[in-house]
Structure formats: C-alpha cells, structure tokens
Write a protein that binds this DNA or RNA. Sequence first.
RNA 1: GGAGAGGUGGCUGAGCGGUUGAAAGCGUCUGCCUCGAAAGCAGAUAAACACAUGCGUGUUUCGGGGGUUCGAAUCCCCCCUUCUCCGCCA
Length: 413
Amino acid sequence: MIDLQLLRNDAEKVKKGLAKRGVAPEKVEALINLDEEIRQLTKATEKLKASRNEKSKTIGIKIKEGLPVEDIAREVKQIGEQIKKSEKEMEAFKDDFQSMLWDLPNLPHDLVPEGAGEEDNLEIRKEGALPDFDFEPRSHHEIGKECDWLDFERGVKLSGNKFVVLKDQGAFYSRHLIQFMLNSARERGYLEVAPPLMAKRSVFYGSGQLPKFEDDLYKIQDDDSFLIPTGEVPLVNLYADEILSEEQLPLKLTCLSSCFRKEAGAAGKETKGLIRLHQFEKVELVAVCKPDQSNQMLDEIVADAEVILKKLGLPYRIMLLCTGDMSGFSTSKTYDLEVWFPSLKKYVEISSCSNCTDFQARRAKIRYKASTGKNQLVHTLNGSALAVGRCLAAVMEHYQQADGSIAWPDMLK
RNA sequence: GGAGAGGUGGCUGAGCGGUUGAAAGCGUCUGCCUCGAAAGCAGAUAAACACAUGCGUGUUUCGGGGGUUCGAAUCCCCCCUUCUCCGCCA
C-alpha cells in the first residue's frame, strides 16, 4: 500500500512513480480529493463525538447526585443520531478510498529502468559458459516423455491440462533438488518453515495478491480461502499484525511450497513441459528487515539464489526488470535470474527476487520497535531459490548426452 | 462435526452499565542511592488516526462484526478463535 503521508506531502512523486507503472495520474488525483473529503468529515464527526462523550459523562455524575437528566439525555440522543448519519456518509467514502488504495501497485525504485516490456529489461551480468553440444539438444519434455519421467498424459487424466506426474528419475531428482536448495538456504542463515498451502482471504491482501488478482488464484469452495500461488504469501504474513523487536531483524525465512496458479491464457512452445504448470514446487526466500537494510538485502537474496545455479553448473544471466515487466504488484525493484535452455536457445526465468519496501508491511501491519521507541514498518523481500520444476528441466537439458541419458550432477545423487 | 468454558495492555490477571485506556503484579525504561552492581525507594511505560506541530487536544480500540442505551470491556445477536470432553480420521 502506498504511504498516505507521502501521498499528501508529495503527490507529484506518487503520480510520477505510478505513471511509470501505467497508473493514470487522475487516479491519484481522485484519491487525494477523497482523502481531503474524508478528513473534513472526520473532523466534524469527532467534534460531535467529543461533545457526546462529555455530556454523557455529566449525566452519570448528575444521576449520582440525584439530579434530573431528561433534557440533557434527549439532547445527547439527538447528537447520537447526527453522528450515525455522518458516520454512514463517511463509511461510503472510506470504502471507496480503501479499495482505490488497495488497487495501487508499489512505487518503482529510482534505479529501475523505464520500459514497456521484456525488451527493456537491463542485463546486469551473465554467468557460466553456454554448453556446446555436438548433437542437436532435445527439450526436457521430449527426454522426459521418452524415459517416462515426466508423464503429461496422466497428469491431464488426473487433474487436467498443465498438470504433470513425475516418475522415477523425474520424481527422484526433483526431490533431491529440493533438498539441495533448502539445505543451501539453511546454510546461508534462513530459518526453514513449512507453512500451510492454503490461506485466508485477508492474508492475500497483506502480500498484495488481493484484491486485484483474484482471478489468478484457486479458491477453496467451502471456505473463504485460496491455494497459495507462492510461498511468499504465508512467509510474508507470518508476522502480520505483529511488532517485532529490533534485535530480531533481519528475519530470513525459507520454505518449500507447492504453488498453484491459474495461468489463464498462457500457452505456446515456450511454456511447454515443466515451464508453466498450474501446480509447481518452489523454494522461497523471504527477508523481513529494517528499511535501511533492504537494498543490501536484495543483493544478498540474489546471491543466495544464484549460488544454486552456480553449484549446479547452469549458465544464467541476471536481469533488472523494467517498470513495464515488473508484474509483481508489491515490488519496487526486481531482479530476475534466467537460466539457459538449450532446446529453446534462450534464457528462461527461474527466479525472481524483489524488494517490496514497506508496501506489504503496511498492508499486513508488520512493524518493529525502533531504538527510538517508535514503531516502524519493516521492509519485506522475497526471491525464489529456485523454481524446482524449471530447475529440473534446465538440468535435464543441460546435462543430456548424445545417447539420450543424463549425466546428473553428483551433488544431486 | 456436537457439548461446555474462555478470548482484557509486552506478559499474568482484576473489572461485568457511568468520571476505566482499563486495578494489582511481573517485565522494561528513567532518576535517587552506590566506587560499581544487586536490593530498596520515586516516577514513567499501548496502538492507530485527525487537528495543532513548542508543551498539546480530540477520536477510536478490551478477539471481529452488528444491536440495545444518553453512555458498553461490562447486556443481546452473529462470526472467528483457544481449551476440555465426545465423535471422526492420515
């Protein structure tokens, strides 16, 4: 959620920042006007309440003294009716205001390049040499189907399009990749968490999936709950509505979670196989820190994700996403890690690391008690380390041999 | 899923219609004492919002929402949640 103080004090900055993400300045303008209106109403209503409270108090005193109170009681009743009326009016304004505010994305960081889409992302660096096959490398789904490690047909039979069944080496190495990733996170100081995979509606407001992206989520029919689209959701909300102590920070959390996404409209050659599914596994990193730590923390998270690719010997590049490609609603700055896919002859996103600044903290009310004694919003960050399915696919493609077998890296055995 | 009992500040726990944002204790902080510390003594110690921004003033909040009342932590209704017992089950 956008900082209201900032909105009031520097509307231009908010307008400019949001414009970069395609939000019309009129929206911000409307918000400011509404805010002003609400404050006027608040002032008037509070005045009425103050007088009611005071007069009610004197009634109590008069009753004790045995004095008559009928006149004043009637008066207070009238004030009460006025209050009700004015509160009703205000509530309508506030509802509008809140839903407008919920719908605004985070402001992009100053260093984020402006751009329309993928083509405007900034390559930070490339790591690892591209493999040199003396045969035409095959896609992971081709290999997977042939060896019966990836059973797409039966995934469809069981659960529908874009579900897969892993078998034999597919299941085995997927499990070992997870183990490898979680262990790596633990070694780097993350607390391992095993969260629920479904969560209540309010939780999704906290991390920013709701109210805007309800269509992307799987809803539980009998409850007002949803399946999580990423482990970020439970991890970020773990300390919602809490006031942390300064010594607790930074908090570094990791979890394995299945992720459920509707992925409406996504299809095509580049999303084949394990690339885009309705359910996939991901090891997630989340950091909760003080505001002045978050810039550095983002670099750390990128490094924590990178190390997996390095150890697996997979070539990748790091991209700084431009404003137009920053799909993460809550983020102010995002680095994508893209791993090389020999069959596609291109880099494919395998991790996304974001600094959400105080955007989620404000929504989820995550604060810490600063040494000054004041409660302050924390900053939250998240990153994948890594998407398991895509990683498995990348390993299969990268380590395939001419004879159709795969030279699995030792660390996964 | 059924029955019963609860949900109060950082924690324990009183209050069960009026001047109670809330006793008491613990914890934390500050001052005194001390060479220093402990003990002791004195005081301070919730959040959000609005207005004033020099001290400050007001509003809201006792699980959440609604209602009764001049006035609700206190009474009524609904929901959530915790504990105990029963049922079910990996």
